[in-house]
Simulated assay, not measured.
Amino acid sequence: MRWWTAGRILAALVGLGAAAVVMASGCGAVDGYDCHEFLTCDIINEDGTNNGACYGTCVEVNSSDFEEQPFIVWMGPAPEQPSCEGVMLADGGSAGLREYERLVAEPDRAVRCGPCACTEPACVLPVGLTVTTGWMCDDGPGETVTPFRAPPAWDGACVAPGAVAPEAFGSFEIAPVTTRPCDVALAPVPRDGDLPGGGQSAVVCSGGSEPTLCPGKNTFCMPAASQLPPGSRRCVVSKMEGDYAMCPSDGGAPGRAFSERFTFWKVSEDERRCTPCACTEIAPSACEAIVSTFEDDACAHLVDAAAVAENGVCHAAEPGSALGSMRAEWRVNVPGSCVPSGGELAGELAIERRTLCCMPEEQ
């Protein structure tokens, strides 16, 4: 029978008379005991166990620096934090715990954002030609328009996107040279409000202590050390921010001493963020290409060659000529430059210190 179950059963036995309660609690029959006194037998052993309703250990909280109730606290690496509701006792029972607060080891107050970086600007060759049957790129009603496009990321090598017969080859427009602007290449991920993972943490769970099953003021019944799951301790938690709290004395009961001291922090607010990265052009690009057109599909028989920059250019075709391939090369290829900005840490971290005093694991 578990400590919290035993308390409920003994309470139910009150209606059966004092004798039944005495036998259930293990207390001796003493004249003058009322019902509550029967349920909280005042025989407490040196290790904190008693012969009454508390099936675990009776512990005393006798310091005004700490919360009035003791807690069950899990301590371990932050990525392994359990939920209080999922904490099971060693014998398979559930402690019925609820989360009180989550704490972390001292956070890194000097968090830095990674550097921002920019891609390099570049000159980009034309995407190809637009061929029309009309004179000087007339694409009005009655004219036939034939696209003659280069492959994506064209490097200027000879390409044959198709074939345009002489009757359809009246003129052609070369698409303009373009520039690829610099862009953000590397940006620090904005903080999501969590402190860096991997450090030690504590999950403080309430509901693991019962104030009515042990005699004495400020005395609580808690699971015994042997009942707790790995990583869990019985602790008291300081009420306020600060490092002032000292662990309470054991009151002459070494088996119930909150003697091991730990310091954690509660994050009340973390607004730290990395400002967005940006790239600013400080020198423009200068780009101009020579585009050559050919009758055959191997760039052997030249039709025409023209210089083209940011505005594109239209050329009339030689009478009777056809279009089978094209090639391009740079006449001017001077990419500009830019500088990154941003990636600065902004916002504040607000934390509160918590002192935990815990019973040794073996007790």
Rank of each mutant, 00 (worst) to 15 (best):
G216H: 07
G216W: 05
G216M: 10
G216P: 02
G216L: 08
G216K: 05
G216Q: 02
K217D: 14
K217W: 10
K217P: 00
N218R: 13
N218G: 04
N218A: 09
N218E: 09
T219F: 05
T219L: 05
T219W: 01
T219E: 02
T219S: 11
F220M: 05
F220R: 04
F220L: 05
F220S: 04
F220G: 05
F220T: 08
C221V: 13
C221W: 03
C221H: 09
M222Q: 14
M222A: 14
M222C: 14
P223T: 11
P223D: 12
P223Y: 09
P223Q: 01
A224H: 12
A225C: 09
A225R: 06
A225G: 14
A225V: 06
S226M: 11
S226T: 15
S226W: 13
S226I: 13
Q227V: 11
Q227D: 15
Q227G: 09
Q227M: 14
L228I: 11
L228V: 13
L228N: 05
P229R: 05
P229L: 04
P230F: 13
P230E: 15
P230S: 15
P230W: 09
S232N: 15
S232A: 15
R233N: 13
R233P: 02
R233K: 14
R234Y: 10
R234P: 07
R234S: 12
C235S: 08
C235E: 06
C235W: 11
C235K: 08
V236H: 00
V236G: 01
V236D: 03
V237D: 00
V237N: 01
V237F: 10
V237H: 04
S238K: 06
S238T: 11
S238E: 00
S238P: 02
K239T: 05
K239H: 01
K239F: 06
M240W: 12
E241W: 13
E241V: 03
E241D: 15
G242P: 02
D243I: 01
D243N: 11
D243R: 08
Y244M: 04
Y244E: 09
A245G: 01
A245I: 08
A245T: 05
A245F: 07
A245L: 01
M246S: 08
M246Q: 12
M246F: 03
M246W: 02
C247I: 00
C247H: 03
C247K: 02
C247E: 00
P248W: 06
P248L: 03
P248E: 05
P248S: 02
P248V: 00
P248K: 03
S249C: 03
S249F: 06
